[in-house]
């Protein structure tokens, strides 16, 4: 039973197969990834994190935050809807078109739709059908647009507006998508909680900021200083009873960097790889050239507000 050479070749083939597939190909396909433009506003995405936030990424890595927090929003489907934004002048034709699109509409429902624009008129459809519907509606001089909304448990939980994509991690080293969620996902931590001071207070005493939190305190990122007559400007504004009395809590540079990094985390720019429409408004025209407005189109611009 000397299959020696054959077995050796088979092993070599197996290993080089997976090596070509999951090492060489990704390093070309993803390792050469470049910045892209956001849909709509056309802003460059992503921007490199500011220096302090980059240092914060290293604090995040060094303390193994990744074992409890993922930075990877999942998405299970996209909802495609048609929203009527303006009724136009030819109401009869519009009503006919709407009735054709949705035979369930009776007169009352149609009146209600026309009174409270913008209104979703076609639910849960495909992109092709939605485009056809928009075409039909605009022929009646009305204005309508397709709205694509990503959906899934993470998005329902408010952890993000869309799934995470390769571009979101472009400038990170190391990339920390994480594998476990002992606590919440942080891909959009900065979008939810843009206040650096909140993050500092939360790192010092998590349970004081989030009732029932099981996160361990990171007191070693702070130092205790004897409180003087006037409190230090850098000291945390903690609720009474959290810091030992007579002492004030001053964040070390690592804590400031980490909090800045957490506040910089947001991955909600609309990209071609993850279509995401802005919420339509009645006044603004549906032009795609319109300047970026609303939260949906904001990119990873500095989060401090």
């Amino acid at each position: 039973m000397n299959y020696g050479p054959l077995i050796f070749l088979a092993a070599l083939f197996a290993l080089s197969g997976s090596w070509l597939g999951f090492v060489v190909t990704p390093s070309f396909q993803l390792g050469t990834l470049q910045q892209t433009n956001t849909v709509g506003a056309g802003l460059t995405y992503p921007l490199a994190r500011p220096g302090l936030a980059q240092q914060g990424l290293q604090v995040y890595r060094a303390n193994g935050c990744v074992y409890c927090h993922s930075q990877m929003v999942t998405q299970e489907r996209t909802l495609c809807e048609v929203v009527l934004t303006e009724a136009g002048t030819n109401t009869t034709a519009l009503v006919a078109a709407l009735h054709k699109l949705n035979p369930n509409y009776n007169q009352e429902a149609l009146d209600a739709v026309l009174k409270s624009l913008p209104k979703t008129v076609v639910f849960n459809t495909t992109k092709t059908k939605a485009d056809a519907a928009v075409k039909e509606l605009t022929q009646t001089t009305a204005k309508a647009q397709v709205v694509i909304t990503p959906a899934g448990p993470d998005i329902a939980r408010g952890w993000g507006k869309r799934r995470s994509v390769a571009e979101d991690y472009l400038y990170d080293y190391p990339t920390l998508p994480g594998a476990q969620r002992v606590g919440p996902d942080l891909a959009n931590a900065g979008a939810r909680l843009p206040d650096v001071n909140w993050h500092l207070r939360h790192l010092y005493a998590p349970a004081a900021e989030v009732k029932g939190s099981t996160m361990p305190p990171y007191r070693f990122l702070f130092e205790l200083r004897k409180a003087g007559l006037t409190p230090s400007t850098q000291a945390l504004q903690l609720s009474p009873g959290i810091a030992p009395s007579g002492w004030e809590v001053v964040p070390r540079p690592e804590a400031v960097a980490l909090a800045t990094y957490l506040a910089s985390l947001r991955a909600d720019a609309p990209l071609y790889s993850t279509p995401l429409s802005s919420a339509p408004t009645a006044s603004a025209s549906a032009d795609t050239n319109a300047p970026a407005g609303g939260a949906n189109l904001s990119t990873n611009a500095p989060a401090a507000k």
Binding site: S18, F22, V23, P26, S27, Q29, L30, G31, T32, L33, A166, E167, D168, Y169, L170, Y171, D172, Y173, P174, T175, P177
Partner: peptide
């Protein structure tokens, strides 16, 4: 020679 972006994670998963 660290790869750029998420390609690092692909290598780590592999």
């Amino acid at each position: 020679f660290p790869l750029r972006g998420i390609a690092q994670s692909v290598i780590a998963w592999w």
